[in-house]
Design a protein around this nucleic acid. Structure first.
Lengths: 333, 333
DNA sequence: ATATTAAAAGTAAGCGGTTTCATGATTGCT
DNA sequence: AGCAATCATGAAACCGCTTACTTTTAATAT
């Protein structure tokens, strides 16, 4: 039944060398006479030998596998990052164990322990709350971790990001400069550091620099979904907001359509700027103005950084900040 | 530096039993006296012992890891499936090695060999072209494979799908029944079996049953992207199409916006039905009518099926067909 | 009590590689 | 030609766990 798998031992026997030698040629160790190497290579070819990565992992303590923790696979922001990660991982011959966390604390913990058991060589983390427990789990894993498109409020772990504070400041300032006085701030939970410590800071900064008062009533926390945004339309009108900064594109699309369906004209009566410049910004009508981020690059750079860390290469700053921009589309005047 | 990891041997020593016994309690083997079990459990707790999954994998030849091959992570269709897969995988304690194929033949081959080397216990494949080489690679892997939301034209592998032919027939028939005579068929490459053998068949079936001639000129092959769809607007008008069936939602959104921007009114002058009922159908304006598919379930059922296969459980039909529907939204009259 | 059987625990052989160390074969240099 | 230094190879321990097989202990029967 189980077709006999060919092992390094079979190759050794067939090539009349020791398994050590086979191992050397497989791993490109230079200390092998060309003639021997060729002989072994021939046998490998002939037997269709393929090294068993599990055995190799046990012996060498390197699995060439990394863990990627992602809050939501179906969220474009994260899946774009994941694509960048994946491409670079492939480039460096790492496999990815993907683990969804749903931003759920227990699940994150569980997932990290899982990855640890599987002996991954490194971890890329997306998510914005790092509890003490999670930090402990990270440490226990004893492998490098990189935060991708996610902030580590305590700056302990390497991360790749844009300057969220500045980006949001710019975005909101833009809204202010168009005469908006009541600008809503719509994001996910304030438990997330990115919202509480970065975006909100940018929002407040923009307001105060233009001498506009801060109004709690304009702050909306919800989940990152179209539905949630759509449902917010009424509330937004109730507080007499004339513009909104939104922390997620799908959420923004919901807000946009909710308002439009309620008869509010965007951008004439209400302006919207969103955050991630994903495909939703082009698909919605009107299209949505947005902060622009190099999503793919954030992922790619994170992974590249991780490879360096895994190789103990010297790296400069552990926090890399990529450039952002502001793209005007139809949802702002 | 490297904190000493605690092994099964440490636990054995500390608990004054053999490693076999420790292994038994870890694996829930009943042949252990309760008192002994407790003692071992205590030591495990005290030492914070965690079994090394790699070693376990080597010894037991089971990695509790499966491979998932996905053409494009950022395509909502696939990421929704992936979510279903992921949830069920978690439920059964499997980890997922995610591998992007980009529908690229060589990459697929490479990826399967990779997964094989990593000794995954099973594979879920998404994609629609299965070459002889790929089939060989599948066989070489020597583990069960399930096609999720993807057809196996040769019906060799288990798969979970909807009835694409019937679904497209219904969709196109709907268009015909509204008086459309020139209905475009817009999908990805005809090299993909799902397009060539299923969707096109449904399309033709619907036409011929209503005695409408088949016109090559109405068939459009492109890639599954918003841009591609947008670019098609002119061509669609040139062939005087008044409706279109589209095989992907993002592509459909492109077609929709392209036409709209060109001054064509949807649905008044042009009707569109798309295929996957992803979130794009709700976000676009007008919203898009679509075939509905239980995306999450397709993924979930695929994974469940795979677990059965991996356990050598008896299964009924290797091909499971889930129900589809048709959802009318604003892009059709 | 003693023989019989079942349950609990231990021994040790792998799983398929990597890697350290020892040894034999080459090469270089005087 | 003779000896040190270098290169190529092999032997074997080890990575951390599972598991078949054996032995010891406990339970039941006679």
């Amino acid at each position: 039944m189980d077709k006999q798998t060919v092992t390094i031992y079979d190759v050794a026997r067939e090539a009349a060398v020791s398994m050590a030698t086979v191992s050397r040629v497989v791993n490109g160790n230079p200390n092998v006479k060309p003639a021997t190497r060729q002989k072994v290579l021939d046998v490998i070819d002939q037997l269709d030998y393929r090294p068993n990565a599990v055995a190799r992992g046990l012996a060498s303590k390197k699995t060439t596998t990394i863990g990627v923790i992602i809050p939501d696979l179906t969220n474009s922001y994260f899946s774009e990052l994941a694509r960048g990660i994946d491409d670079v991982a492939l480039m460096y011959k790492y496999n990815i164990i993907l683990a969804s966390s749903d931003e759920n604390h227990d699940k994150e913990l569980q997932v990290v322990d899982n990855l640890t058991a599987k002996q991954v060589d490194g971890i890329i983390f997306m998510g914005n709350q790092v509890s003490k427990d999670l930090r402990d789990a990270f440490n226990r894993a004893n492998v490098p971790i990189v935060f991708a498109g996610s902030v580590d409020p305590e700056h302990q772990s390497p991360s790749v990001n844009i300057d969220y504070v500045a980006a949001v400041t710019d975005a909101v300032a833009k809204l202010v400069s168009r005469g908006n006085k009541r600008i809503a701030f719509v994001t996910g939970s304030m438990d997330e550091s990115i919202n509480k410590d970065y975006r909100l800071k940018g929002y407040k900064q923009a307001l105060s620099s233009k001498r506009i008062g801060y109004d709690e009533g304009l702050i909306f926390q919800t989940d990152y979904s179209y539905k949630a945004g759509y449902a917010l339309a009424q509330a937004l009108q109730d507080v007499k907001a004339t513009a909104a900064f939104v922390g997620d594109d799908e959420l923004a699309a919901g807000v946009l359509n909710g308002l439009t369906d309620a008869g509010v004209k965007v951008p004439e009566d209400f302006e919207i700027i969103t955050s991630n410049d994903t495909r939703f910004t082009e698909i919605s009508r009107p299209t949505m103005s947005s902060i622009t981020q190099p999503l793919y690059d954030i992922g790619a750079v994170s992974m590249r950084l991780l490879t360096k860390l895994m190789n103990n290469e010297e790296i400069g700053d552990k926090t890399v900040v990529l450039p952002y921009g502001l793209k005007k589309r139809q949802s702002t005047k």
